[in-house]
């Protein structure tokens, strides 16, 4: 078995080479918040954080993640306390069907770590790797800006 560190905990996955990280997270670990839509690295639904960087887990082999820290949507909340980004997406209704939302939230986390006080235009470019087929983009931009605000409050509180 291969040991990965997912959402802060060591977990075991199959040591087969020929599996994507998305498959291992979903099938071995039941982390079905990792959504695979296009499976070609274009839509961003399967985005997870690997050592804090956003990566398309459908294009990455599970074994490539060995020794790295992985965060999925399941690792964002702290117990019952939602992460400020999750809270912001709810408050601004930054989704419709919700399929792309886990990927968007993880992209937001990486984006705000690099640019904590973005403009709306910077958000659009920063989120360009996540496709929302419902077209909720204006609300998503508002949600990311709101998340920046909430995280700023949390940081200064």
């Amino acid at each position: 078995m291969t040991v990965l560190k997912v959402n802060g905990r060591p977990v075991e996955i199959s040591n087969r080479g020929d599996r994507t990280l998305a498959t291992a997270l979903r099938e071995d670990l039941g982390l079905i918040g990792v959504r695979v839509s296009c499976a070609e690295g274009e839509c961003g639904s399967c985005t997870v954080l690997v050592d804090n960087k956003p990566m398309t887990s459908c294009l990455m082999l599970a074994q490539q993640a060995k020794g790295k820290e992985i965060v999925t949507i399941e690792g964002m909340a702290n117990g019952d306390d939602l992460h400020p980004i999750q809270q912001a997406f709810i408050e601004e209704q930054g989704f419709q069907c919700g399929f792309c939302t886990p990927g968007l939230i993880l992209s937001t986390k990486a984006f705000l770590a690099e640019n904590p006080n973005p403009t709306a235009d910077e958000v659009s470019v920063g989120m360009s790797g996540n496709i929302c087929r419902c077209g909720a983009y204006p609300y998503i931009v508002k949600a990311v800006l709101k998340a920046a605000e909430l995280m700023d409050e949390t940081a200064t509180a």
């Binding site: 690295g41 985005t47 990566m55 398309t56 294009l59 992209s107 790797g129």
Partner: peptide
């Protein structure tokens, strides 16, 4: 080229 997430890989 590609998306931000794919560019990190």
């Amino acid at each position: 080229m590609a998306t931000p997430q794919t560019r990190t890989l």
